[in-house]
Amino acid sequence: MHNDDHAADRRWHDLVLGLRADLDGIVEDFLSAVGLLEPYSRGQVPLAVLRHDAVSSFTHLIDELASRPRADHVTIAHDVGTDRARRGVPLPALMSAIRIDVEVLWTRIRGAMRTEDMPLVLDRVERLWEVVERYNRDVQQAYLEEQTLMTREREDEVGTVLTRLLDGPVTPALVGRFAGLLGVPEDGPLLVAAVPTTRRRGLWTWFRELIAERRPVHWQTRGDDALLVTSLTADQARDLRRGIVPARVSSVPCAVGPLADGVEDLPRSARLALRLARVLPVGSEDARRIRDLWLPLARADLDEDALTALVDAVTAPLTALPHADRTRLVSTLRSYLACGSVSETAAASYCHRNTVLNRLGQVRDLTGCDPSIPEQAALLLVCLGALPGETGDM
């Protein structure tokens, strides 16, 4: 029995090593078959590269089948996986090419065997699959690792180009480079959202969703803020122009910049989104635009001396009142400025409308600003947020 096993092993060994003498024919069979697959049929991998890799791969597989493993087998698989990743060959196409290895080797073994070899060959088919599957796994691991590295490299380059765009000047070369890296048209609509990094969870979750959907998107941290840039569909762009934030991002606590009409317009939108992020109220549960944050933005744009002088000039008589009186007047004033209706303010304050009118009259007499006059109401809004104990979040 032992002699029979030994003879079978020796015969298998002879059959497999016989493949080495026919290596050129095996490689040509492989090239003919793989040349029918996309994207190989379009020459995405040069023929010279395919031939070189086929010689190395089949030499390795034949040696493995003959139980003569090569020390460089991992290097061969790594080189093939990384090369195909860099050339943009889809992973399913790469796996299909490797399956052709099995078909070619099996066909050649069957062509070389005698009738009496059938039992020993069938007994070793599993060995053939094991060898090719191990090679397959090594190639796939190298491919995926290279893809991860390429993604990091791309993100780093996108970040570098975006930083240069934001810092200026904007050049056609930068515009084209950013559009190419992000995979969007140069004049395509873009959405920019920003948030303080300490409150980035919601925006980060949306970023991961966009990646899973294979949407063009970029995430970048600038100082204490996080910035997200993504493309928009024509319908989403039209809605954003009309002041309607896209449905998914509308529920994300963040600041949304104005629509960027193409990459050249991106810096304007990004800079404003970052400014809005810095005045985004703590506890926000949805996306805010400039129309929602204009008041804290206007307040933030005043330097400390100017804001202090303005607040003192307008509200000093209010702050001089006893606490209870000041609280009643300010509460009524804020309620009225939020709705512009005496009746609604009265209902919200649980008092008669004449009481509301009297309190608003007191505000006018004390501050010199009439809440019913829009320009003077805006001044009151700016100053109210700076009063001690006031948030200014209407």
Rank of each mutant, 00 (worst) to 15 (best):
D5Q: 15
H6V: 13
G18F: 01
G18E: 06
D22F: 00
I26T: 11
F30S: 07
G35F: 04
S41P: 00
R42P: 04
P46C: 09
P46K: 11
A48N: 09
A48V: 14
A54P: 03
S57N: 08
S57Q: 14
H60Q: 12
L61K: 05
I62S: 05
L65Q: 05
S67H: 15
R68C: 03
R70L: 11
T75W: 05
D79Y: 00
D79M: 02
V80N: 02
R84H: 15
R86P: 01
V89R: 12
P90T: 09
A97Y: 04
R99P: 00
R99T: 13
R99M: 08
V102H: 13
A112N: 07
M113P: 02
P119Y: 04
L122P: 02
V125R: 11
E126H: 13
R127S: 06
W129P: 00
R134N: 13
Y135Q: 09
M150V: 04
R152L: 13
R152Y: 09
D156H: 10
E157S: 02
T160Q: 10
L165S: 02
P172F: 09
L174G: 08
R177W: 04
F178T: 10
F178C: 03
V184A: 11
P189H: 08
L190M: 11
L190N: 10
T198L: 02
R199I: 05
G202S: 14
L203M: 04
F207E: 09
E209M: 06
R214C: 03
W219P: 03
W219C: 02
A226R: 09
A226L: 02
D235I: 14
A237T: 09
D239F: 08
V245W: 04
S250A: 15
V252G: 07
C254R: 10
V256L: 13
V263W: 06
E264H: 11
D265G: 01
L266A: 07
V279F: 03
S284W: 00
A287G: 05
R291V: 14
D292F: 03
L295I: 15
L297Q: 06
A298R: 12
D301P: 00
D301Y: 00
D301T: 07
L302C: 02
A306V: 15
A306H: 08
D312R: 15
T315P: 00
A316Y: 01
R326T: 03
T327P: 01
L329D: 09
L329W: 04
L337H: 07
E344N: 10
T345D: 04
S349Y: 00
C351E: 11
N354F: 00
L357D: 08
R359G: 03
R364S: 05
L366H: 07
P371V: 07
A377F: 02
L384Q: 05
L387V: 12
M394R: 14
